[in-house]
Simulated scan of single mutants.
Amino acid sequence: MLTVLAVPAFQDNYLWLIHDGRHAVVVDPGDATPILAALNAHQLSLAAILLTHHHADHVGGVPDLLANFHVPVFGPRHEAIPQITDPLSEGESITIPELSLTLDVLDVPGHTKGHIAYIAPRQQWLFCGDTLFAGGCGRLFEGTPEQMVDSLSKLAALPDATQVYCSHEYTLSNLRFAREVEPDNIALNARIRAEQAKRDCGLPTIPSTIGLERSTNPFLRFHEPAIAERLIALNHLSSREPIAVFTALRQWKNSYR
């Protein structure tokens, strides 16, 4: 039986350890120290490293982990991460034999040009880095709105029960913005109460699910007429064209506090 363990790092990152009680795979280890501590605490041996994109808070711990474990490093084919031993792109699958874990790869550019995501179809897990967040999506540092819309559409097409393991605890901030966009969304308002209760108890809000994101995340709901009308009413938008709606949403979120 495989388990996903959240390892907090920095101010709001989650580093993910997939393990079976003996062996583990780490996703986006931006810092080696908490990963090494978690491996030691749970008596786990590292079998592989999975990377979604090149930002330092996702790859910074790789050199120190490789100093302790001789393991393959899987990562995006189209990003310059020197430690990658097994470059990946959409359509490829990998198997981690120590865990009997198979992962499919999707190209999900937008946040960065070469960002990838990993799907464990048997377990219905998604490790999406900084492309999709609980209640939000990543900033477009390198890609275009068209690329991000295409990437998010791929993720939104996954089964509702798919668990979303993103990399940051941004949920409450994202949902406050979502409420500005869709103040009458009943599912969203219920979600805000539920996620606030988790944080009040010191619990993570991750993982989310694709079904929950589709009903509450404005960046998966930008095609909804009410969202376009809201943006127009607030002078954030002059066109109802879908890409224009998404772009206006992302620009508004960039400056939202």
Rank of each mutant, 00 (worst) to 15 (best):
L152S: 05
G21E: 04
P121H: 10
P218Y: 04
A47I: 11
L101K: 09
V181W: 11
T102W: 01
L140C: 02
L234I: 10
T33F: 08
G211H: 12
S255E: 11
P76M: 07
L212V: 15
V26M: 04
L203S: 09
R22V: 12
N254A: 13
F222D: 07
N254H: 12
I18S: 04
P218I: 07
E213V: 04
I94C: 03
I119W: 05
S239R: 11
Y170Q: 14
E241I: 10
F10M: 08
Q123P: 10
F133D: 06
L15D: 00
V27H: 10
S208N: 14
R230A: 12
E169I: 12
T216P: 04
L50G: 12
H58Q: 09
H58C: 00
Y256F: 15
L17W: 01
D20V: 07
R22M: 09
L5M: 11
T52W: 00
A157K: 08
V4D: 01
L106N: 03
N254R: 13
P63H: 00
A56R: 13
A6E: 09
D150Q: 13
A233I: 10
E180Y: 12
L103R: 07
T216L: 10
D86Q: 15
T216N: 02
L103H: 07
T171Y: 03
A6G: 09
N13V: 01
L51F: 03
P109L: 12
H42D: 09
P242V: 03
L126G: 02
L15N: 02
A24R: 02
G110Q: 00
I96N: 03
S93P: 09
